[in-house]
């Protein structure tokens, strides 16, 4: 019997004017799992993310989501059918409050956003759900603070709350702990673990501690191709991975 894969990429290729950034990547993400994409700098992790969410057009290959071919969808359409991504650098709406940030996620899901003639009071119907989400990520008391004024770790937490608000079936997180201090990393890791329940997460992550702790399955990329795939134990004992990831000196 076939296993239940929510996302499948077959032979993904991305060329930039002769430079091949992603070269025939096959990826299968099992429903309900946390799947990590790791690899040295320049391995093509973020490019794969951009291909999957259609922020970049695919040169060759096919992407299936829930069995549906989404290879030529627009980025907005991809999000509408349940794949919501985050970005490597923190991506909040800086000059809106935390509450407004999260509300935009809820509003995206609810629709009706072209209604330029309707009253803004309508947006208050999202307040309760938005506050509940802020509570979950520990930002309840910052609801009325501009996102730009939040410290870095809290910005990332706000970003996760906003992503969750859009209620994705598949969350793509691009280095959620990048640039964080140890304490923040622990907090975000715990948060992600809680948030991932009932959802599927595909994440790019540099911090191997986080990956070991969170990921059910790991795909290692190197120079645009898949080097290895498996559980953390399998991958971390693979000599090729050790050589590629940690450098030959450590091997």
């Amino acid at each position: 019997m076939e296993e239940d894969y929510i996302l499948e990429a077959k032979g993904l290729v991305k060329e930039f004017r002769g430079f091949v950034a992603v070269n025939g990547v096959d990826l299968k993400v099992r429903r309900g799992s946390i799947h990590a994409l790791i690899g040295p700098n320049g391995a093509g992790k973020t490019t794969v993310f951009n291909l999957l969410t259609k922020f970049l057009p695919v040169t060759r290959g096919q992407i299936l989501y829930q069995g549906r071919d989404i290879t030529h969808y627009s980025p907005a359409r991809v999000a509408q059918i349940g794949i919501v991504r985050s970005f490597q650098i923190s991506s909040v709406f800086p000059h809106l409050t935390a509450l407004e940030n999260v509300r935009l996620g809820l509003q995206a899901k609810a629709g009706g956003s072209f209604a330029f003639w309707r009253s803004g009071a309508l947006l208050h119907r999202f307040d309760e759900a938005a506050l509940a989400l802020l509570e979950q990520v520990g930002l309840r008391e910052y609801a009325k603070v501009m996102a730009v004024e939040l410290p870095y770790g809290r910005k990332r937490a706000l970003e996760i709350a906003t992503t969750l608000a859009a209620d994705p079936e598949l969350m793509l997180l691009d280095e959620p702990t990048q640039g964080m201090g140890t304490e923040d990393v622990e907090a975000i890791t715990a948060l992600l673990k809680r948030m991932a329940q009932g959802r599927t997460v595909l994440m790019v992550e540099h911090n191997l501690g986080v990956v070991a702790h969170l990921a059910d399955r790991i795909t290692v990329l190197q120079r645009g191709t898949v080097l290895a795939e498996g559980t953390y134990a399998e991958v971390s004992s693979n000599p090729e991975v050790i050589a590629a990831y940690l450098g030959v000196a450590h091997a």
């Binding site: 999000a79 991506s91 909040v92 009253s119 803004g120």
Partner: peptide
């Protein structure tokens, strides 16, 4: 309006608005 709120989101961070759908 709800529309205006999305406009502000686009002004603030276009890629993020797109990624939310």
């Amino acid at each position: 309006s709800p529309f205006g709120q999305v406009l502000k989101a686009i002004r603030e961070n276009e890629a993020r608005a797109l990624s939310l759908g």
